[in-house]
């Protein structure tokens, strides 16, 4: 009886794990099957034509890259600052707890609300109109918790004795940070940033009202009224109108490219990220 239950238990949980992996395989398989035929060199290097039914997605790719690069430039310094406060400067457990709650809350804010915030503040109050910079700033703030927590976990897994050894040589906290802590934890920053960027690349909601349009933009020349095209918004628009077979192929092709970008960024980061995470949480 006990043996039977044990075996059944293992089977059921195993099936759950298999189901999770199966869903992934099914989804990726379906997208590749539908979309790969559409992906070609021309698809990547040409502009949109015929409202998405023909041509390629060159400027969508460029736009998404502009957005996530801006997000990286916004979030990386902030992440370093916040992580140092959490990992080094804050001495009290209560203070650290409060800062962590702040990050946790920020991580919980629905991405759509970032978009509305940007719409009110940048698009309307500051009068920027739709601008790549707004999108980059919002995406940067949105991925900030991901990047910061990765960095914090890396910093907190550094052996205390490095810091003590450095301090023992008469270095100030400032010098220890720049000569020991940051060089040692750059791995955490990179993996966190890559995962954050993977998320940012696929987000539609924050840029919907603030930074992206469907057609007619190239490389932005300024800040005001300088929207970009983007991959996720392209899919979002075409998905609502995907009964035209020509459009259907293009939208799947775009999904393949977006998935490739996101998956590539994640795959570089994940093995290292998971290891740091395990070390930080389970000794």
């Amino acid at each position: 009886m006990r043996k039977v239950f044990d075996l059944g238990f293992k089977w059921v949980t195993g099936l759950c794990a298999l189901l999770a992996c199966g869903v992934l395989a099914l989804m990726v398989g379906a997208i590749l099957f539908r979309g790969l035929p559409a992906v070609s060199w021309h698809f990547l290097t040409e502009q949109i034509r015929l409202v998405g039914a023909d041509g390629g997605i060159f400027y969508n790719l460029v736009g998404t890259l502009i957005l996530i690069t801006t997000a990286l430039i916004v979030s990386a310094p902030l992440a370093v600052g916040v992580a140092l406060l959490q990992g080094i400067y804050l001495r009290s457990a209560a203070g650290r707890r409060r800062l962590l709650l702040l990050l946790y809350l920020l991580n919980g804010v629905p991405s759509l609300l970032f978009g509305l915030f940007g719409f009110i503040v940048f698009v309307k109050f500051l009068g920027w109109g739709k601008s790549w910079l707004t999108g980059g700033i919002l995406l940067g703030l949105m991925i900030l918790p991901t990047v910061t927590v990765a960095l914090i976990e890396r910093i907190s897994s550094l052996p205390r004795r490095y810091l003590e050894a450095a301090a023992g040589l008469g270095l100030t906290t400032e010098q220890v940070i720049w000569s020991v802590i940051l060089p040692q934890s750059v791995g955490g920053l990179i993996t966190g940033a890559l995962l954050g960027l993977a998320r940012a690349a696929g987000e539609t909601a924050p840029i919907l009202f603030t930074a992206t349009i469907f057609a007619g933009a190239t490389v932005p020349a300024g800040i005001r009224e300088s929207p970009v095209l983007s991959l996720p918004y392209h899919i979002f628009v075409l998905a609502q109108d995907s009964f035209d077979p020509a459009v259907g192929t293009k939208v799947w092709g775009t999904a393949v490219v977006l998935l490739g970008l996101v998956g590539g960024l994640s795959l570089i980061a994940l093995p290292l990220r998971l290891r740091i995470h395990e070390e930080a949480n389970h000794g």
């Binding site: 999770a20 869903v23 992934l24 989804m27 997208i31 995962l195 993977a198 998320r199 690349a201 696929g202 987000e203 539609t204 909601a205 996720p232 918004y233 899919i235 979002f236 998905a239 999904a255 977006l258 998935l259 996101v262 998956g263 994640s266 795959l267 994940l270 998971l274």
Partner: peptide
């Protein structure tokens, strides 16, 4: 984690 990374629009 890859499953988590698939964009919601997809």
């Amino acid at each position: 984690e890859l499953l988590a990374g698939i964009p919601s629009v997809v």
